[in-house]
Structure formats: C-alpha cells, structure tokens
Design a protein around this nucleic acid. Sequence first.
DNA 1: TTGCGTGCAAAGGTTTTGCATGGCA
DNA 2: TGCCATGCAAAACCTTTGCACGCAA
Lengths: 140, 140
Amino acid sequence: MAEKSGYKTKQREELMEYLETVPGVHITVNDVCDFFRQSGRNIGTTTVYRQLERMVDEGLVSKYIIDGNSPACFEYLGEHIHEDHQVCFHCKCEKCGKLIHMHCDELNGIREHLSEHHGFKLNSMRTVFYGICEECDSKE
Amino acid sequence: MAEKSGYKTKQREELMEYLETVPGVHITVNDVCDFFRQSGRNIGTTTVYRQLERMVDEGLVSKYIIDGNSPACFEYLGEHIHEDHQVCFHCKCEKCGKLIHMHCDELNGIREHLSEHHGFKLNSMRTVFYGICEECDSKE
DNA sequence: TTGCGTGCAAAGGTTTTGCATGGCA
DNA sequence: TGCCATGCAAAACCTTTGCACGCAA
C-alpha cells in the first residue's frame, strides 16, 4: 500500500539486493538469515521479520502461509511489482508453489460484490487464493 | 474422508454434542476447552486437537488456517456435512483484525469459475480475503 | 486382552515484544 | 537533535510428542 515508508538502512539495502537475486522464489526468514550468516554479514532475525513485513505492506513482497505450523514464505515479486493490483489476482499452488497472476473480469466482480453486499473493501495486493493448479491437479 | 474410524469415547461424545449446538460457527481449540471448563466437565487440550483433527478427516468439521500465528478455526458443518462445496469464506480486516466468515452463493461461484476457466482448484480452508471491514472503513 | 484414547507435562517452532543502543535524516 | 531501526534476550503462542494410565471393543 504505502509505496514509501521509513528509513533506508544498510540492512534494508542488503536485504533488497539479496531479494533481487531471487525473484519469484520462496524464502523463509531463516533462509535469509542463513544466507547472510554464510556470507559473513549478519542481519538479526527480528530485523528480517520487520523488514519483510514492511515490504509486504509496500507491495514489493508477497507473504504466504503454506501451512499453519511451518514458517511463512516470502516471495520477492520482481517484475510483477508494478502490476496493477486492482486488476490482478494471485493464485498460489500449494503443491508446486507456482504463483499465478490472473487478470479476469469475473474475479473483479467479487471486489464489487464484497464491497456492496458485505461492506468489505478488498485488498487484492494481499489476498491470495490457495489451491491446486491445473498441472498438479492433472498429475493425480 | 474416512467416514468412520476409532472408538466412541465419552470425550468424543460430549464434544460432538457441543458441536451440534454451534453448527456453522467458528471455534478454536481454546473455545472448546473453555466451554467445558466452564461447565464443570473437562477435556484435555490434546484430546480436543486430536478429536477435531479426526473429525476433519471424517468430513464432519472444516478447518481453517486464517494466518500463521492465530489459532486454527474449526467449524462443525451441521446439515452441510455432505455437500463438500458449501464451505464458508473468510474476510480478515487488516485494521482491527476482525475475522468475518460468510456463507455466500456468489462467492461460491468463484470457486466454480476458478475451476472451469482457470483450472484452479480453490482451497477455501486457507484462502482469506484481506481488506478493510465496514466499521473500520466508516471510521475514516 | 488388545490396542486405542486420554491428559499431563514438556518439547518444538515460529513470531513478537521490551529495551538499550546505534544510525538516518 | 529527534526519531526510527537494530538486535539481543526473553516472552508469548500454538501445536505436537512422549508416556503412563484407563477405557472401549
């Protein structure tokens, strides 16, 4: 939402640099910390949590809860960052992890429906449809 | 989906009786334990977890993972037990954190739409609409 | 009698919070 | 200078597991 916010710190910059090398890839907070630990530099777990959460708010990163107990997955959106999220919905395959960006009028209808009939203002940037994609489904 | 399984214990029976009084309602494991604590009887947390999980397998109860941290929500399906498409949808307010669950035909339509036009099998157990609820929206 | 169910205590993990310190603007 | 960010340690939670005991079939 808030395209800009907060300070530009060394940690944030290094985190951004790293993220840009793994667009569209699932990473956990621990992955990030491990990466920095291995490359000598260090970023506190708390900071990673806070920066990633901030990037989710800024629309740079998506957050996924693949299952209740395991750690949350984050994904740098890369080239999809500036996609018009008023028209684009995200579907996440729970099996292969693929993220599908779909533009669809029918889906846009639900935004209106939610607003008119339920008084709910949908935030499509944050909303993710979980399920099984066509490919994975046909493999069964 | 195993329609039958295991023993019929006192705890399971009392749990079932309770569930039948709250069909279509969201409850957490803690809600259940509190209820029994308040009514004098007691059921161990572990048992509630295990029985509810079993009922999910049996198709009597739906489980929803709203977000990584908050506790899982369970819902006794009541008369909808044998219609596996009649599951409810969830909206979570990003401001006040309120969780709204809705049974809505129009929303159920999107499940079909996603399936037919996009080959995507929606998992309503984990899909949550994020946005701003009516109350919070009017406060601005 | 056999084996599943129960429930306590403890473990296992993830995420959040408190707080003093340090860095950005 | 003022305020935000950092990061450590500790807390807060939810959920699962180990294990001894009890109860269903």
